[in-house]
Amino acid sequence: MKITDVTAYPVQGERRPYLLVAVDTDEGITGVGEAGLSGHEQAEVGACQQLRELVLGQDPFRTEHLWQVMTRGTFFPARGVLASVVSAIDIALWDIKGKALGQPLYNLLGGRVRDQVPCYTHLRGGRRTHDDPEGHHDAVEAARAAVAEGWRYLRFSPDDEDGVLEPGRSARRAARRMEALRDALGDDVELLVDVHTRFGLPEAVWFCDAIADQRPYFVEDALRSEYLEGYRRLRQASRVPLAAGEQLDSKTAFRPLLEEELIDYARIDLCNVGGITEALKVAAMCEAHDIRVAVHNPLGVVSTAACLHFNLALTPFGVQEQPYRPGVDAEVFPVQAFEFRDGALVPGDAPGLGVELDRDAALARRFDGSARLPLFRRADGSFTNW
């Protein structure tokens, strides 16, 4: 079997734009992958054209070899945009292997160690009104509705005020929201806080201490992940589980966080870290340090399927991010061989990832720009993290 083509499909999905990659073979088997660097879709299209030349004519079963060629074959390390497209091609290669062998992908990763994958969703709500000036009542009602749908893990983030985010003010408001949610939901629902790098070290230390008695499942990205000294200091000062890693694109980038055990949950993004091939290596490092994996998955159908198969075969598993129930973008993906049941994803037994791409539908929903991400500012007009 040989690779005959690699094609990028920027698609406007029902929820957001996606960058999909299809890898074709001379035996008529096609694998599909997804790149994860949101806001850089057009750059990813260009990177896909470059990496295509490195894999054409190659055996798709040689995933490790092709990963090395793609990440090291142009001398400079494949980071950022390149890493995201390496991820997409790698996922597509694993999809091809599963389809060629007639096996669901999790069987190629060692077989299932669990029957289903518990997931957390993004908590909507928090609308401010005259009677609910901080939006906590609205957030509680949204949380109750999510629990009624079957979710048992809920995530929220410190919010802004019409694009203005003052870290200290936002931290205090988020602490009050955490208390309101815990009081309303009790102890049977896990609450996760994604700070999304919006705090500096003083606010992160204060916030983690303020919510410790509310028992968060974890606090994610309290600081930017490259701020290692900050994580060292936060680790010493904090009593809550910490999570980070979605911005990291290789095992070497994860290495200090894992070897120094600065986090409790590794937020591996299969569509940015280098695909399944590299994610398996990061996960092995996690297991050696008793750190759980909570995959980052805010993306589309392919990312969801890849995360599901990865987590089904993963021993140091924590929880999977899943902002929506399966079934979205059914026009582009008419086959999605998994379902949502009681707060978890349940797999089917279709080969590969268990998804099929309708190329005509993808072309009909072509997205020619790049996703515009929010830009936050401080009250004085200076830039701050979203």
Rank of each mutant, 00 (worst) to 15 (best):
R182F: 05
V85L: 15
R198Y: 09
L262T: 14
D90P: 01
L314N: 14
G110K: 03
A350G: 10
L280E: 10
L280F: 07
E27Y: 05
G111H: 09
A337H: 12
Y231S: 11
P77M: 08
S225E: 14
G28N: 10
R239T: 05
E287I: 03
D380M: 07
F207S: 09
A266R: 12
Y324R: 13
P60M: 14
R79G: 06
R114E: 14
D188M: 01
A78Q: 09
A8Y: 13
P10N: 03
V332L: 04
V193Q: 11
W386L: 09
D290T: 00
E229I: 01
G369S: 00
R372E: 09
D194M: 04
K99E: 15
K97L: 05
P60E: 03
H296A: 10
L154R: 12
R267I: 02
G348V: 04
D368K: 00
A184K: 07
Y231P: 04
E44P: 02
V23N: 10
F338E: 12
E44R: 06
V55K: 15
G111K: 05
G33P: 06
L192M: 13
H65P: 00
R127E: 08
T74E: 07
G80F: 07
A143P: 11
R155T: 13
I291N: 11
E259M: 06
V32K: 13
G110T: 04
L345Q: 13
A212V: 03
L51R: 15
H65C: 06
P334E: 06
E190G: 01
D290Y: 07
P347S: 08
G111V: 07
D194Q: 10
P374T: 01
A43S: 07
V301F: 11
F367H: 05
S382T: 13
R292S: 03
N311Y: 11
L181H: 13
A253E: 15
D159V: 04
P298Q: 11
L314G: 14
C208S: 10
V69Q: 15
N385R: 06
L242P: 03
A306N: 09
R359S: 07
R155G: 02
A8Q: 10
I89F: 14
E203G: 07
A344R: 10
E34P: 00
L191P: 08
P77S: 13
G245H: 09
N311E: 11
D360C: 01
P374H: 13
G369N: 00
D159S: 07
A253W: 10
D213P: 01
P17H: 09
S157G: 12
A184C: 08
E44M: 11
E331H: 05
G39F: 07
Q236H: 05
G73Q: 10
D213R: 08
F75G: 08
P326H: 09
T74Q: 09
D90Q: 10
D342I: 14
R169L: 06
A184E: 15
E203W: 05
N272W: 13
E260T: 02
G110V: 01
L201C: 01
R182D: 12
T63V: 13
L223K: 15
Q214P: 00
T277R: 06
G28T: 00
Y265I: 02
D264T: 09
E166V: 04
S170R: 01
L258N: 14
Q322P: 03
L353S: 10
E14D: 02
N107K: 02
A43T: 02
V319F: 12
R215V: 01
F333D: 03
L357M: 11
A288V: 11
